[in-house]
Computed example of a mutant assay.
Amino acid sequence: MTESGLKAVFLEMRPQLLRLLAARLGDRDEAEDALQDMWFRIDQLVVTGPIGQPSAFLYRIAANLATDRRIAGQRRMARDTGWVDVQVAAEDLPDAERVLMGREKLAAVEAVIAEMPERMRSALRLFRFEERPQRDIATQLGITVSGVEKLLRRAYKQISDATTQFDAGAADRNRLIDERGPLT
């Protein structure tokens, strides 16, 4: 059977192929799209020899196409679901007022840190930003661990005093955590 003969069989069997695809895919519109894809595949098919059972051949193409489309649909749904799951919900995003207040608070903290004495600023930077242990900071600054704790406590107090206008829960911020436990 030639390519044009296969197209003639396809046109004859179109209603049956459409029913098969609709049953396999569960959607008539999707089945119509699959049937269109099938027509394009047949058009691009290079027939090297006669096809003994063209109807069986077309049913096999339709079944394979339906399977491919189901698998692709499942992958698409999993990908889209995964994408939605990692997206930030609109209610989780800060509103403009909170963004502005956060920027103002950050500017206040940066100003307070800039005004701190050098040793206090160094202790704070090493402990909070570089996450160095207090013992290492004490060695580097040439003071005791207790001295580092006092520097950090004073630094936190200055930051807390400067930012109390931004937080209603300023009292909770006075509890500091160091390597030994809560400081009051």
Rank of each mutant, 00 (worst) to 15 (best):
1 M>E: 02
3 E>T: 13
3 E>Q: 10
5 G>I: 09
9 V>H: 13
10 F>E: 06
13 M>L: 07
18 L>P: 00
18 L>R: 12
19 R>H: 07
19 R>N: 11
23 A>F: 14
24 R>L: 00
26 G>T: 03
31 A>W: 06
31 A>F: 02
32 E>H: 01
34 A>N: 08
38 M>C: 09
39 W>I: 06
39 W>Y: 15
43 D>H: 15
47 V>P: 03
48 T>R: 09
55 S>R: 14
57 F>L: 12
58 L>N: 14
61 I>P: 12
61 I>M: 15
61 I>F: 09
66 A>E: 10
70 R>S: 12
71 I>V: 15
72 A>C: 15
74 Q>A: 13
75 R>D: 08
80 D>G: 03
82 G>T: 01
82 G>F: 05
84 V>W: 00
84 V>C: 00
89 A>C: 08
91 E>H: 02
94 P>N: 12
98 R>T: 03
100 L>A: 14
104 E>M: 12
107 A>I: 04
116 M>F: 00
121 R>I: 04
122 S>V: 00
125 R>I: 05
125 R>M: 07
127 F>Y: 15
130 E>N: 10
132 R>H: 08
139 T>G: 05
141 L>S: 06
150 K>R: 03
152 L>E: 00
152 L>G: 00
153 R>I: 07
162 A>G: 09
163 T>W: 01
167 D>T: 08
168 A>F: 02
171 A>W: 05
172 D>K: 11
173 R>I: 04
177 I>G: 00
182 P>R: 01
